[in-house]
Design a protein around this nucleic acid. Sequence first.
RNA 1: GCCCCCAUCGACUAGCGGUCCAGGUCGCGGCCCUUUCAAGGCCGUCGCACGGGUUCGAAUCCCGUUGGGGGCACCA
Length: 419
Amino acid sequence: MSSRVRMAPSPTGLLHIGTVRTALFNWLFARHDSGEFRLRIENTDTTREVAEAVDQIQDSLRWLGLDWDGPATFQLDRMDDCREVAQRLVAEGKAYEDDGAIRFRMPDEGVTAWDDVVRGRVEFPNEKLEDVVLVRSDGRSTYNFASPMEDVWDGITHVIRGDDHISNTPKQLNIIRAVGAEVPVYAHVPMVYGSDGKKLSKRHGAVSVEEFRHAGYLPDALVNFLALLGWAPDGETTIMSRAELIERFSLERVSQSPAQFDYDKLDWMNGMYLRAMPLDDFAHALILYLGEQGYDWDAELVRKTAPLVQEKIARLGEFPGFAGFFFEDVEPNPDDLGDATPMLEAAQAALEGLEPFTAEAIEAALRAAADELGLKPRQAFQPIRVAVTGSKVSPGLFESIELLGRETTLARLSAVRAV
RNA sequence: GCCCCCAUCGACUAGCGGUCCAGGUCGCGGCCCUUUCAAGGCCGUCGCACGGGUUCGAAUCCCGUUGGGGGCACCA
């Protein structure tokens, strides 16, 4: 029998990166196994539902490339079915009414146990299990009832979820058995924490997929990074394509201990992915990203700047700050300029009639000018960089000047001298 | 309070009784390269939480301690 798994977010806000990590494990498992990966929206708590959340969740998943099989389903749509089952359980004496709600009668003795794929054998004494509410007094089923029932109806073979659900599992197990269905295999994966060992949240940095997208991370890099949080194919491999991830993934190698989200490592990895891209792809990603973020910069010019920045940035979001001077006027800080009038004059003179106006020729001309003034390259070029790019940090100076063009370069050089 | 889980460098991890005076990656430090910043190359720093066992032999198995996390809703 082929496997079927699911991710089951509740539509209460933007898709959390921790949820994605768990979803990714489901997805990798399904793709590895030629199984199905379903998307179920757990919206039984209508009071917490956020209107746009369902669309946002699906957008985020699509952007990440985590494709799901079949249409997304909604837990609320099965309320009637749940109520029916609950009634049957009441009739069978397995559940009872309580204040208008329906509660499940948990066993009082013995233990409820299962073999968890990542934790091994897990046992719960039944005396600790509460009689959970199946259906609220207003008729809506609860999560602990709807979720296992849907797993049954959808033919879910493996429930792969965060280990914060461990204590729900014995309850759900008993419910599933009570309705006479077959229980799925459970795999509780550890959660993702922030740098302080606490649940990953806003104050640690970006947490929603939207934020990572906005910051200019690549889906492939994010997926690669997330896969390595609590899973490793061996001790050596770190950069893996989706295909390799799928091929090598197995639940048995998922760690039992929680992992901390390391933003530095993500940046490093994203940089690796950025640099590994063919130049055209990189330029394309850049143009797409800038468009998404609302920049109306000339795509052709962006394309031309791409080779100058590809090795320099780790996130696409660094581009505007790093290469914005190609598209917008600059305001150099006089303090960064220092007292460099002679070199700036010399540079102006050197570039004025230079032919051809290419990076190589520009470099040769400026080096000659620096020599003449007895300046070291560093001393000579820094003020030019500040004048032309508006910053002490920039792409290669000579290439930048070539791309910027003679006119703009000269204008910027004389602008700082006028101050 | 009760129940459950986790424990290797600062971080992610490899290790599943000898091949480990613990390997890889990020970070950090140094050097090289160099027009800035990166990138790249080379070198280095840092760890088996603690205490008892078991065993010829333990990072690996068992027990306890400590530390951390999660759960105990008519939330999911």
